[in-house]
Every structure is written in C-alpha cells, then in structure tokens.
Design a protein around this nucleic acid. Sequence first.
DNA 1: GCCGTTTTCGGCCCGACTGTTTTCAGTCG
Length: 581
Amino acid sequence: MDKKSVIDILEEIGVMLELKGESESRARAYYWAARVISSLDVPLETLIAENKLKELKGIGKALSAKITELVTTGRLQYHENLKSSFPETLFELLKIPGMGPKRLKAVYDTLGIKSLGELEYACHENRLISLKGFGIKTQEKILLGIQQLKRYQGQYLYDFAQKEAEKILSLIAQHSKVIQSSVVSSLRRKVEVIKEIDILASTNDKMKVMDFFTSLKDIESVTVKGDAKSNVTLPLRYTQGQGQALNTGINVNLYTVSDAQFPYVLRYLTGSEEHNIAIRDRAAKMGFEMNEDGLFKDGKFIECKDENQIFHKLGLAFIPPELRENTGEIELAERDALPKLIEESDIKGTFHVHTTYSDGISTVAEMAEAAMKLGFTYLGISDHSQYAAYANGMKPDAIQKQHREIDTLNCKFDNFKIFKGIEADILPDGSIDYDDAILAAFDFVIASVHSKFNMTEEEMTKRNIKAIENEHVTMLAHPTGRLLLGREGYPVNVAKVIDAAAANDVVIELNANPHRFDLDWRYCKLAKEKGVKISINTDAHNLDELRYTYMGVGIARKGWLEAKDVINTMNLREVCDVYSR
DNA sequence: GCCGTTTTCGGCCCGACTGTTTTCAGTCG
C-alpha cells in the first residue's frame, strides 16, 4: 500500500475515534502518526523490514503494528471494523471548508445528518443554528462550502488527468490495429482543470480497437460502446484535489477514425469551441467547407496529411494546441507572427523549493542532486520564513546554518549552483517577514501571502504592491493564493500587481504546482506585454515535485510565453550576474 | 495512543483567525 493511502487511513481513524467520543488525545496520536509518515523520505517498507517504525517519535507499539498490517496486507482490520459502523457518505462532509471532526460529530449525533445533500437541506431549513457552538455565519459558510464542492464536481486536476490519459494512450498506441493516436480536447490544450479525457485513434479496424479499449483491465465501467466512440469510467483514486468529495472516477472517451480523417478530427476535437468557430468562419469566407470529416471546396475533399497542412490551406501558420482559445492566435497566425513558445528543453533550473529546513521532506543536498538529475544547472532554495510557524518557518539561526550548508555544498559542485533564497511571508500590512539585515543575506527573496486571506480586493492589492516595492524582494509567489478545485484565490487586482512588478523590476512566479498554476495563464500575456519576467517555480516539497517544472512550461506556453520571458531559461552565469550577492 | 519520568500515570498541542461566546472552541495553514 502506498504512503498516501496509509496517511489517509490513519487520519480517517482519528476522525472516527472523535466521532465515537473517544479521548481526543488518542485521536490526535493517529493524526500525529499520519504527519510523521507524510514527512518520511524513506519508504515505509524499508522501515518495516528493518523494524525501525517504533523508533519514530509518536509511533509506539500499537501504531507500529497497525501500520505494518496496512503496508504488508494492504488493509487494516481495525480500520475496517470502525468504518463499518458509519455511513459511507459521512466522510465527504469533511471536505467542506470549516467542517472538522467536532462539527461533523455535532451534525451527525444531533441531527442525524450523514451526507452532503442532507446537510445542505438542513442549512436551508436553518437547523444548524440550533446546535451548540453553531450560529448563522457558520451555517452560511457551510452552505457556501457545499455549493463550492458541487461546482467542482466532475472536474480533475491537470496532473491527475494527464497521468491517467498517458497510461491509456500508451496502451492504445501499442495496439497492432492503431495507426496514429493522440490525446485531444482540453488536455491537449493544457487547460488547468479537466472534465474528461478524450483520446483519438486512427485504424482500419474500429471494432477491434474498441473491444480492446472497453475491456482494459483498469476500468470501473463501460458507459457507451460504439465503433466511432466509446466511453468508460475509471475507478476513483485517492490522489486528487481537496474539493473533489463528490467525484467518481474520471471518464475517458475514445474516438476512432480512418487514417485519412485523423488530422481533421485531431484538429476538430482539440478545440477549443471558440477557436473552432473562428476557424470555421474563416474557412467559410475562403470558400471552404469545414467539418469533422475534413476540409472541402466545391464538394471536393482537400487532402492534408497533418494539422500543419490544414492550417496552411487556410492561410495560417501552425497554431500550437495550447494557444487555441481564440484570444488572438488566429490573427497572428495569419501574419506568421505567433510567439515562439518556450520549450521544456529551454529550462536550465528552477526556484522556490522547500527542504527539511521548513516543511519539505528532503534535504538541501537531496534536492540539489535531484535537480542535477533533471539536467538543471542551478536550484533556488527558498524555505518558509519565521512567520509561517505552521510550516516550521526558519528562525535567524536556522538561516545561518542553511547558508553554511549551501556554501559547503556549492564548493563540491562543478557546473551547478544552489542559490540561497527565502519564501518570506508578506505580513498583513504588506511588510516582509525579517528585517533588512537578514533579507540582505539572501541571493533572492520570494514574497508570498499565507495568512489573512479575507481582506478586500483593495487592501490585498495594496498589501501585495507594498511587498513588491520592498527593495529586497526579487519575486512575488502565487499571486492569488488559489488552490484549484479547493479554494478560490483571494480577491486581488492582478493587473495592478503586474504594473507594480513592472515598475519595480520584480519577477512574478508561475507556480507550477498543479494545485495552483498561479499566475493564471490568462494573465501571463499581460505580464509579458508589461515587460514583467516570469519564473516557473515548482514550490516542490519533495524530490518528485521538481518535475512540476515541466507542467509549468505547459502553462507558460498556454500563456504565450517565450524563452526570453522566463528567467529559468537563463544559464548559470546569467543567473549569477543577476541574483548572486 | 505515545511519551517520559520526580518511571506505570498525567499531559500531550503552534498560533492566528473566526464565530461563538462572555472566556473559548474549532479550524486551518
């Protein structure tokens, strides 16, 4: 059993113990154990094999036995027994912001509420306010939270959808009857939130391919099976965003066409709808007829062997899928003036990485090694600052220790450098955590908001601008604080923030964590026009998350960014010139 | 359930914010 599932189960046991009215400390022991495990960087299997689980602080005899049972057998009898005494739907209520174990117990025990639907109804009937500790505002907040969850229903984070799609596409592509295949629609356009996975394949034997697709091992159910289109649902997996309480597994559509049709349908299914309408209008004005089956003039089929030729026939340069949103790409393609979008191979390094000095689970050295493996020539470490106590923010002595460690490591490297950075909190009044002397010791300073999200747009904009105007600040991180499918961003005037960044020569981060993708791609073009540089930052808290850099490149492309707009494309010497102190 | 002793039982937990209270409970990052 994987680590994430172990963590989920331990936390669920904690909640169930609280619901049962067991001692809070006992429940807390399970929460704590979950935290300890989440911060491990050795596999649980190793610890178990070496009988070292009990050495972890907070894991004693009982928890050690339970975790061992979980990891080795994939289940835990104690957990299953507990779980069978509660309605299955009860736990989805915990996904509501502001709803924790205590309030869950109150609505379950007193009102007998066991699902989101029942809770929503009870809110409408004003039944929550009768509960001790509940009032009008809490009830309103819960109702709002339920509505938000419903809005997020049926949506999936890009990272998750992309991984699922890749697995299926690789199987389809290997099938002997498949000639060409591709992911299409929003996933191909690299939209940040995905509703369905659509895959297109060309073949001379549609039914054979559909038989194969609908009988794949890892699918939950088959909804539709035809020779041109089939739809299956994948099993629900537990690796998704926090706002997905109501979700089932994601749907996958497979479309099959003849090989001659492939480029036309590839273009058509890639969309977007707005882009397709504009393209079709253009085709019509040029005397073409354009539909899913192909491109026609006077009823005659115009042969194109790929998408490039289709665009060419319409007097356009090839438009990369990411740009097909009808936001000016067609006009520029007509003048062959589309931007030369940034490529994954342009990336030389990344910034905004956490380590064990704050809330990361890997050491500075491990992170650097992982970055080198990706071919990076530099890495900007930026742990949390002291104000972020929840994230173990660094006190001044920790900073000194980290800097000494980085200096020692840097001496050992040839063509690689670790830059000393900090993710410093922007305090509610817009000032930056730490005094000037401490801030001056870093190569770069990332400023970000992690507290007091409930300001007005005007206050929050002012707060961010004041931070940008601080002479020590190099870049602004996750400008809206949004968590996709989890939390709306705080209100802030992004255009004004971009103006301030331009005026103060401050870089804006494109946070490449798929939960964030913040700066939103819709603002990247504006930042570029204003001359603001973008940094693709992973916000990695472990080794694996460094790969988010490449997802960030996808979003940067969607935001029209070129290599010269992104500071991660600078080589080591250039970064040294700009940032090293 | 874990830990650590003044060693077999009592305390355990960071701090801000919100909403409910009228001094604090619950949630969250």
